[in-house]
């Protein structure tokens, strides 16, 4: 189990291999269906984004509401393939890491290879367990989307598996 600090560097992305079990620490941003649609629409329109995507890691997740006094509610990965149509543009805009669940399209795998990015998976359904690794949550954009808004999360040792590495090797095809 190797420990990885965010943001992902060229070096750390090179070392991560499909099938590796890792623990990720640092800052990530949530974005799922509607946020992806909006981000890509802004990118295509050459408009300003609500966050700088360069070298960042995106978590496909929409949390349940936090109980009073808690940092966050249950939060685990949602199905990554729904983000596939948007992902090549998101990677072109600078994103280097993605966290979700399930397989990706051939176009996404090609884009991952082209941009030397990394796709991680977290355990789908383990949302209470996974919430303990989130130390801070902050709204960044589009509050009106509720659980689909963009949140900045500070994570410590979030347990993940490298599903598709920067060479395009895919754990689901192994």
């Amino acid at each position: 189990m190797s420990k990885i600090e965010l943001p992902l560097t060229t070096e750390s992305r090179k070392e991560l291999k499909a099938g590796d079990l890792v623990e990720l620490s640092g800052v990530i941003y949530t974005a799922r269906d509607q946020a992806h649609k909006r981000l890509v629409s802004l990118i295509e329109g050459e408009k300003e984004l609500p966050l700088d995507l360069q070298d960042q890691t995106i978590y496909y997740a929409g949390p349940a509401p936090a109980r009073p006094g808690e940092i966050i509610g249950s939060i685990g990965p949602t199905t990554s393939s729904r983000m596939d149509p948007f992902t090549p543009a998101i990677l072109k805009a600078g994103v280097k890491g993605m966290i979700g669940k399930g397989n990706r399209s051939d176009d996404v795998i090609k884009a991952i290879k082209r941009h030397r990015a990394v796709y991680f998976v977290a355990t789908g359904g383990a949302a209470v367990y996974l919430s303990q690794f989130i130390k801070k949550m902050e709204l960044i954009a589009w509050q009106e989307l509720g659980p689909e808004a963009i949140y900045k999360l500070t994570i410590a040792d979030l347990p993940l598996v490298v599903a598709i590495d920067s060479e395009g090797v895919n754990v689901f095809e192994k």
Binding site: G62, A64, G73, I75, T123, G125, A126, A127, Y129, P147
Partner: peptide, 15 residues
């Protein structure tokens, strides 16, 4: 672990 945590913390199993 998730089933145990959810019961102990009274949180939904999944978001």
């Amino acid at each position: 672990a998730n089933y145990q945590d959810a019961a102990a913390k009274k949180m939904p199993l999944c978001q």
